[in-house]
Write a protein that binds this DNA or RNA. Structure first.
Lengths: 247, 247
DNA sequence: ACGTTCACCGTACGGTGTGCGCAATCCGTA
DNA sequence: TACGGATTGCGCACACCGTACGGTGAACGT
């Protein structure tokens, strides 16, 4: 039935299936591509089909390397934890400084990947990812070397991380709505703050806050706010747990 | 074509459309039903269709009262904030106690509605919801009455709330996976902790923690952990901002 | 009595995650 | 070298999603 030498677009004109031309798929590739896609277009844009397309693969081809979408998300989140600078104190006694640097690094990672916190909210803290484990262990090590009991160190780490996650939740939600609106931060503030001032008419304190925020809600201010809060938390934790070594 | 008096099941046998028998739909009803559904079956089970069915309504009938699903979620989250006990200090100087009670109430609400934090992660803190505004304003009032500057009060509130949100993120993620698995907390621990001990073989401190947690990770322990962290945060905030009135 | 408004519904569209079975390639063994 | 499983990727299909759109009947102002 097939007439040789004449490529007619029919069932018989095979388009050379030729599998295995790419070096196949791997979990690492998939996770990396997902991270790229998430960073570029956000959490709502991540679909298995789009991810497949980006990998020159079919929609369901990833399922041999990853159980399901949730598991993929856990893997990607752990990848984010991998970006965080491990705490290395110059002076073992000054664990506050090391924790502070680590907390800043964590927040910075969450702000670089604003989709991450929404995954945290759904999947939990991915406790068993290798990068999370590495980070936690070295934090505990720093605090133990600083003189804390292990239980105290765990408590301290949890408290500080909870603070960072909480701040990042709020901040990256803001970043996401901002990115989605396509406006600059200034334009957005200009369009929202009047509404906020209106909505808070019955609440004098909030009203004053929003009124004063008009030229004030910049990146630098938010950085400072985070720093202040972080210092409070570290100070509180230190006083509670450090055996006389709090600054 | 229609033969009178004989109800034949056909296009012609009209089933008495009879609209307006129910007192119609309202935004309050919709939000309440959504909250019920979320509490009963979790965030993944909330679809506009299911919600419509629960309200004896069509799938798209809610869209006259609510712009879209995201807006509905914001409304529901604000409803959750409405459950929180407003801070009322016995002694104006003892704002720490009032804030502590409020923070506990906030965490309790998040634990009653574990889906809420995953909405927080996507929609932000719903800053302009009336219940959020009311809560924030009264927190600010308590701190101002306690002697703090407004800016300091705002900083303090943000810090404490960030801590609570962070803790709740982790805790409600745990609650959700637990609920989804259908097992009790003890069974779950029994099945997970060996895996955790295995995974942390290379990390002695984490290993010790998971080993000791085996009979220890109860509700009461988590409550205590939260309390300790909260005390740290409050203490740190107080020392930073209170003009000599910290306990 | 009539036109307008409004709440609601059915339908439809373009998307989603993923189970399943087929095909093709790779690898260990004979 | 031949062959037979195991592994990997793909196409298809299913059930479900959010929601745009146009129609429909009831309520209401005139």
């Amino acid at each position: 039935m097939a007439t040789e030498g004449r490529p007619i677009p029919s069932v018989w004109t095979r388009p050379r299936p030729q599998r295995r031309e790419q070096p196949a798929l791997s979990r690492e590739q998939i996770v990396a591509a997902a991270l790229e896609l998430l960073d570029a277009e956000g959490i709502d844009a991540l679909s298995m089909r789009k991810l497949g397309t980006r990998l020159n693969a079919g929609a369901t081809s990833m399922y041999t390397h990853v159980a399901n979408k949730d598991e993929l998300l856990e893997l990607v989140v752990d990848e984010v934890y991998g970006e965080i600078e491990l705490p290395v104190p110059d002076d073992p006694a000054d664990w506050q400084d090391a924790m502070s640097r680590c907390a800043r690094s964590l927040r910075a990672a969450f702000l670089r990947h604003p989709w991450a916190v929404s995954v945290l909210g759904e999947t939990g803290l991915a406790y068993l990812g290798p990068n999370v484990l590495r980070l936690m262990e070295s934090l505990l090590a720093v605090l133990e070397d600083g003189g804390l009991e292990l239980a105290a160190a765990e408590q301290a780490v949890h408290t500080v991380i909870a603070y960072v996650v909480g701040v990042s939740t709020s901040e990256s939600a803001t970043l996401r709505t901002l990115a989605r609106s396509g406006r600059t931060q200034a334009e957005w503030a200009e369009s929202l703050l009047p509404a906020a001032e209106e909505a808070t008419r019955a609440y004098p304190r909030l009203h004053r806050i929003y009124a004063e925020r008009r030229e004030q809600d910049t990146r630098a201010v938010r950085d400072d706010d985070f720093t202040v809060g972080l210092e409070c938390v570290l100070q509180g934790v230190a006083q509670r747990f450090a055996s006389g070594t709090g600054r």
